[in-house]
Amino acid sequence: MKSKTAYLGLLLAFALILSYIEVLIPFSFGIPGVKLGLSNLAVLLALCLLGYRDAFLLTVVKAIFCGFLFGNMTMILYSLSGAVCSFLAMAVMMKSNRFHLLTISAVGGVMHNAGQLLVAYFVVKTYGIFYYVPILILAGLIAGILIGTIVTLVMPFIRNVIKRGTNI
């Protein structure tokens, strides 16, 4: 793939649009931190298509941009820690080549919540928030599996398009 930068920009735009859509959908489960995490679609695609370095760049830039666009400094802190945790877990699993994309995404979802919870603990310094752990694990798992399913289904088509693009 020659035009990595172009793809990186494309995926970043994709991630931001997905974040925007997620803000639009009134999707509240009553528990802070439980959400679908649609923009992880873009991160997962970047991991598959562009490699670790660019995917990491996308993760960080996405978290910062989303924070500025739809949130505030605290939100950047939360989503950055979650996104980096999630990315590291997914990258390691991807590298080991022993897991399906679906599982990688599921673990990514769980780790996203784990990273956020860790920051939340340092902010409020109350053990009380750890009562949320089981709920957050399950929520991350379900969200991750959904995202993983989409990426698994979509990947063959995208690979096809990219292959055709470079042939021309």
Binding site: F99, T103, A106, V133, I137, L141
Partner: peptide
């Protein structure tokens, strides 16, 4: 699949 089941099992056990 072996890896998948293992890691998902660990996560569910943790939950």
């Amino acid at each position: 699949i072996k890896g998948d089941v293992l890691i998902l099992g660990i996560i569910l056990a943790l939950a």
